[in-house]
Amino acid sequence: MLNLTKQEQQVMVFLLSVCLCGLAINFWRKVSFRPRILINFSQNTGKINLNKADLADLKSVSGIGDKTAARILEYRRQKQGFNDLSELEAVPGLTKPRLEKIKGSFYLD
């Protein structure tokens, strides 16, 4: 039951050799990795443009729900855009502590 023909032996040796090589290469890549220093993301990466964000974009910020997002959009529409992030203080429903929490998530062009 356990006998291998010569052909089977050759196939087994070939397959096992290929597997071993692949495994060794993968292991070497795993242990020899050195972190590549990359160009920093731009200062505004991961932040939302306050003058271009839609409802979904605003709601994606932690701390902003449906009502707050709608109020921000309404305020922006009335004032035809924000000139400074501090203008968020004038949006109804945004208290100072909450504003401090979310201000870092936005930027302006």
Binding site: Q9, V13, L16, S17, L20
Partner: peptide
Amino acid sequence: LFFHRKIFIFGA
């Protein structure tokens, strides 16, 4: 794998 015999292949 250097030894093309059944027991060594199983060992490999």
